[in-house]
């Protein structure tokens, strides 16, 4: 489903050139739950951003569903992300000025859905993560675990085929972390969603189908 070929990412400043990813090649099958591990600064998040089409590789090719993603316009990329991808971030990135329901509806704003459809889908997504009773709350009124569950609801509301999670349990204690992990596993198992998760936590990584390790931008496992 996702195919990375010789992906390189170089960050350049006037004086320094940093190789963040070095010839990474990876194939991820549909329905797979993959975790990416490695020390800080090894390129995990860069890899996730490139898969999520939030960043471009300096060299190499990405294909998602056999479609080349290079040369897509800003609008096409936006549509592609909207339809195929869902994101979960370590620091949740909820919009603090919007209520939980409005936050979850966000991806649906960028496709043709009526207000009623948006509300219905968002309510369903919130029910899946067990937050039906928090729809009118603002993010600041929620605990860390609840915020991450809202973020998961936002990621799944548009029924994307792929979910990219960047340290989703990184800011949570182990009990809450496990809860979030359980939701992701269930999502992968029941709905067949492909999940790629960056993590620092060996225990979490071992719950996934496959583990990829990076070191200094290169794939070591």
């Amino acid at each position: 489903m996702i195919r990375l070929q010789n992906i390189e990412k170089v960050y350049r400043t006037d004086t320094v050139e940093t190789l963040a990813l070095n010839k990474v090649s990876l194939e991820i099958a549909k329905g797979e739950f993959l975790s990416v591990m490695g020390p800080s600064g090894c390129g995990k998040s860069t890899l996730l951003n490139i898969i999520g089409l939030l960043d471009e590789p300096s060299k190499g090719e990405i294909r998602i569903d056999d479609q080349k993603t290079a040369n897509l316009s800003d609008k096409q990329l936006a549509q592609f992300r909207n339809k195929k991808l869902g994101f979960i971030f370590q620091s949740y990135h909820l919009i603090s000025d919007l209520q939980v329901l409005d936050n979850v509806e966000l991806p649906l704003l960028y496709r043709s859905a009526t207000a009623r459809e948006r509300k219905q889908l968002a309510t369903e997504a919130l029910a899946k993560v067990g937050l039906s009773n928090r729809v009118k709350h603002f993010p600041s009124q929620l605990s860390g675990g609840q915020k991450q569950r809202v973020a998961i609801a936002r990621a799944i509301v548009g029924r994307p085929e792929i979910i990219l999670a960047d340290e989703p349990t990184g800011n949570l204690d182990s009990a809450m972390g496990n809860e979030i992990m359980d939701i992701l596993i269930q999502l992968n198992r029941d709905e067949g969603t492909t999940i790629i998760m960056v993590t620092h936590d060996e225990n979490m990584a071992h719950k996934t189908h496959r583990l990829v390790r990076l070191f200094d931008g290169s794939q070591v496992q």
């Binding site: 939030l54 936006a78 992300r81 909207n82 869902g86 990135h93 919009i95 991806p107 960028y110 496709r111």
Partner: peptide
């Protein structure tokens, strides 16, 4: 900018 990042990630184009 965090909001802008999120909106872009979830499918907002620059024009939107």
């Amino acid at each position: 900018s965090s909001e802008i990042g999120v909106r872009k990630a979830f499918g907002a184009s620059s024009r939107t």
